[in-house]
């Protein structure tokens, strides 16, 4: 019973983190057909900015409660600034090029962002545990969990719901679906496709930064976290179907629960578990669980 509870809570917590970190990636792919490896860089920028800002703020001795405002603000600043710079400065000159070329371009951007984080924050680790400590822990069937973990789960659900509503029940969302379906027709209808691309990319980057920023109080922020997350995020969106937000949610849950199950039941195979699940899903559904082979879907 205790094992099941541990798997359920840890799996949900891990899935929430994965979803927040990968949903921007799948959004950008769904709209722009760019497999954005630089997403790991946005995640790292968000984590570093949040950890640094929280550290700076807590040194003043002011109330910790404000850090819950600082974290999303840090993500917003990191995501919007870096997203705009990357999209306006580099990617807009590449639209329409081969998808493989875009992978190489975004990989190069990722490497640049990795070095940018090192230039700004150095190579030492940043820890900003205060927001996670401040909320304390709660016992779930005798096992202590940080309340902050449940906060991340709540934020992940909120982000997923907000994206679903925006895309399916608002005018902007419907216009976006038109852009996804046919860029040329959209332009002919007077839709500003370039603006949609820019906004989508910035939102995707900000979501990546938010994933990093929210996770920062629970981890040590170190060089290399961007590379770690991009591998996981790709596994998640490949399982769920690239370009599908519902798929990203399902993929995150599958990877999250399988990792938690392996940690608690058979720890030596934990790292292998993610790839095992991905291989198993792709063997049955080569385009992922939610994606159609020939059409774009979001």
């Amino acid at each position: 019973m205790l094992t099941a509870v541990a798997i359920a809570v840890d799996g949900l917590g891990f899935a929430a983190w994965l979803f927040l970190s990968s949903v921007g990636l799948t959004l950008i792919y769904g709209v722009m057909r760019i497999l954005n490896i630089a997403h790991g860089g946005f995640y790292a920028l968000g984590a570093y900015t949040a950890a640094w800002a929280v550290g700076l703020y807590t040194q003043t001795g002011s109330t910790i409660a404000l850090t819950y405002l600082i974290i999303p603000l840090a993500a917003l600043v990191a995501g919007v600034v870096s997203g705009l710079l990357v999209e306006r400065g580099i990617l807009r000159f590449m639209y329409g090029r081969d998808e493989v070329l875009m992978v190489l371009v975004t990989y190069a951007i990722f490497l640049i962002l990795e070095d940018v984080t090192k230039l700004i924050w150095g190579t030492d680790s940043y820890v900003s545990y205060q927001p996670a400590y401040w909320l304390g822990t709660i016992d779930v069937f005798g096992l202590p969990y940080t309340v902050y973990k449940f906060l991340i789960i709540a934020v992940a659900i909120a982000v997923g719901a907000a994206l679903y509503v925006t895309l399916n029940h608002t005018r902007v969302g419907k216009l976006l679906l038109v852009v996804i379906e046919d860029r040329e027709v959209s332009k002919a209808l007077g839709i500003n496709v370039t603006l949609f691309f820019t906004v989508t990319f910035v939102i995707g980057a900000t979501l990546g930064a938010l994933g990093g920023a929210l996770t920062a109080p629970e981890i040590s922020v170190v060089p290399g976290i961007g590379a770690e997350i991009i591998v996981m995020a790709f596994a998640v969106i490949v399982i769920g179907g690239m370009g599908s937000i519902g798929g990203a949610m399902l993929g995150a849950l599958i990877v999250g629960f399988s990792r938690a199950a392996f940690v608690h039941l058979y720890p030596p195979a934990e790292l292998f578990s993610i790839y095992l699940v991905m291989a198993a899903v792709l063997a049955v559904k080569p385009y992922g669980l939610f994606a159609l082979a020939e059409s774009r879907k979001i």
């Binding site: 969990y145 973990k149 996770t215 940690v263 608690h264 720890p267």
Partner: peptide
Amino acid sequence: AGEYWPKVFETDFSPYIQSLLR
């Protein structure tokens, strides 16, 4: 009572800690 092998430079040990607590 248990063996756990998180990867080097792991940033989140909480599932392992939960497992140790059990």
